[in-house]
Design a binder for these strands. Structure first.
Length: 563
RNA sequence: UGACCCAUGGUGUAAUUGGCAACACAGCUGGUUUUGGUCCAGUCGUUCUAGGUUCGAGUCCUAGUGGGUCAACCA
């Protein structure tokens, strides 16, 4: 297919090079390593698509590995949510792993390092150690405990493991180089004492390994060939390699860490901490609020896995700072939904139209195409009657020729129905238009083939029969932030840019074919946008979310003339 | 006053590894259309700067400029 014609990203170049230099194709293996301390977001989606995409491309296994070395922050609830998200995106992992599966092996290796004089127990406070650590421009100083005997180190480390010491009393450190220009090489901590139950190992352990000691070794145990992470781990690579140097057997594959830039999305924030802040401050209603850039939020909003995968593919992967415009994400969801979403008619801001020359009590069921992009989608019937709703914005008493919609004395096509002409309108005491009286041309019925039905009128409106309409709650969402880079301002907090109009609840009037929709069903409300059925929906109480609007060149035109 | 990473249209990514700067989005102009949607066509660049190597540099070298990362018992 066109797959091979596609240009390679820098990670793929590295892999191709490794393949040329002796890696066997069956040696390739990847992993996606989330920490189960929060929900996955669109940035993770890029990493998921990268790792699992590589697996697909090279027919290599990809493990799902939970990086669960900190029991203070990690929970089972997150494990389940993460698995659901990865599956929903459409990927299958080879095996489900946990860093905690390797606690014993890691512990044994740590003892080995102690015996080889490459690790020691330090018994200072974290403040003391921080002081000795130096700064990026000054070297650090060695700990007074650095040269404890192997026996003492072993004894203390075992004591740590057996719960003989309280938290903070001792740590195990790698003995590397306190003068290194890389702060991470200044005798990094490998283990700390933590008297906390772990979501998998419960109270088996009183010591927990740190990230740097765990990650590379887990890659090694799983024989991951390419361990891909974000740019901030670049300085960790030296340490990653140092730890591997102490253990790797020559007949086994040695994992390689490579770093890529995390993807940022405009008009939102992509950081667990900030997303948590949005949740806890009540700005949004939870991690799966349809305005959240979490996978669960996007799913609830009506995004499709395909659209997110295509988005990830399009933005690619590189090493420079970036802010991807959210309009690219919106493009991909429109592109996909345009192909698959059935068209229906719904009015969100109703204005009653009475067709004065249409018989009272009469109704007709008109033919309507379900999807002009997909002939196999078939047709349905929509009821027409004397009184219909149209959108308030679709009528003006008078307007210039650029306004293609209904105006007094003007004609417009009712989608799938007749051509109508506005004759008059009535207003309330405040001057608001409350009703429009129209006449219709009985010979102009859509699809009837008559000369009148073929007449070209500039505007076509969606509508819904008043007596047949069903009501639904419609949640109209917009971007969560008013600024393209809410967290990119040094002097301002990102919370200042929250869009107060990002959510609006309205009552919609829908054509009756929508009576039996199911949670998750996606539709195009014609001329308005794409909507899906929210999980809050229940029998007789429909709730829809607006996924995204249609492209709206009219709105742009209006915007321009206002300025 | 250190080490390391990065720099290509408004945005994101490419460029057969030194050989005509390409693709997508956004914007703008038109055309088609019973969705102001879709679709189609056109349009928008001194590859951060200055030197150098070379027949030829986005790509290699040197210097500079700008941005980022690094001092958690977090990952």
């Amino acid at each position: 297919m066109g797959e091979d014609a596609k240009s390679l990203n820098f990670i793929e170049h590295i892999i191709e090079e490794d393949l040329e230099n002796g890696y066997g194709k069956n040696e390739l293996r990847f992993r996606f390593p989330p920490e189960p301390n929060g929900y996955l977001h669109i940035g993770h989606a890029s990493s998921i698509c990268l790792n699992f995409g590589l697996g697909l491309r090279y027919n290599a296994p990809v493990n799902l590995r939970f990086d669960d070395t900190n029991p203070a922050k990690e929970e089972k609830e997150y494990v389940e949510a993460i698995k659901k998200d990865v599956e929903w995106l459409g990927f299958k992992w080879d095996t489900e792993r946990y860093a905690s599966d390797y606690f014993q092996q890691l512990y044994d290796w740590a003892k080995q390092l102690i015996k080889e004089g490459k690790a020691y127990v330090d018994s200072q406070t974290s403040e003391e150690m921080a002081e000795q650590k130096g700064t990026p421009t000054e070297p650090g100083k060695e700990s007074p405990h650095r040269n404890r005997t192997v026996e003492e180190n072993l004894r203390l480390f075992e004591g740590m493991k057996n719960g003989e010491f309280e938290e903070g009393k001792h740590v195990l450190r790698a003995k590397i180089d306190m003068t290194s220009s890389n702060m991470l090489m200044r005798d990094p901590i490998m283990y700390r004492v933590l008297h906390k139950p772990h979501h998998r190992t419960n109270t088996d352990w009183c010591i927990y390994p740190m990230y740097d000691w765990t990650h590379g070794e887990s890659d090694y145990i799983e024989q991951v060939s390419h361990s891909l992470c974000t740019l901030e781990f670049l300085p960790h690579r030296e340490l990653y390699n140092w730890f591997l140097d102490q253990l790797v057997a020559t007949d086994k594959l040695r994992p390689k860490q490579r770093e890529f830039a995390r993807r940022n999305l405009s008009h939102t924030v992509v950081s667990k901490r900030k997303l948590l802040q949005l949740v806890e401050s009540g700005v949004v209603n939870g991690w799966d609020d349809p305005r959240m850039p979490t996978i669960s939020g996007l799913r609830r909003r009506g995004y499709t896995p395909e659209s997110i995968r295509n988005f990830s593919e399009t933005i690619g992967i590189a090493k420079r700072e970036n802010v991807v415009d959210v309009s690219l994400l919106e493009f991909h969801v429109r592109e996909h939904l345009n192909k698959i979403a059935p068209r229906v008619m719904a009015v969100l801001n109703p204005l009653k139209v009475v067709i004065t020359n249409y018989d009272e009590g009469k109704e007709e069921w008109l033919d309507a195409e379900n999807n002009p992009e997909d002939e196999s989608a078939g047709n349905r019937k929509v009821p027409f009657s004397r009184e219909i709703f149209i959108e308030k914005e679709d009528f003006r008493e008078e307007a210039n020729r650029k306004f293609f919609r209904l105006k007094l004395g003007g004609e417009v096509r009712l989608k799938n129905g007749y051509i109508i002409k506005a004759e008059s309108c009535t207003k309330d005491t405040d001057g608001n238009i409350t009703e429009v009286q129209c006449t219709y041309d009985p010979k102009s019925k859509s699809g009837s083939g008559t000369e009148e039905s073929l007449r070209k009128v500039k505007g076509t409106l969606h509508w819904v029969s008043v007596q047949h309409a069903i009501e639904a709650e419609v949640r109209v969402y917009d971007r969560l932030f008013t600024d393209a880079t809410p967290d990119g301002h040094k002097d301002k907090d990102f919370m200042e840019f929250v869009n107060k109009d990002s959510f609006q609840k309205v009552t919609g009037y829908l054509e009756p074919s929508l009576k039996d929709v199911k949670v998750g069903d996606r539709f195009q409300f014609q001329r308005l946008g794409y909507f899906n059925v929210d999980s809050d929906s229940s029998e007789g109480n429909l709730v829809f979310n607006r996924t995204v609007t249609l492209r709206d060149t009219w709105a742009k035109l209006e915007q321009k003339t206002k300025q």
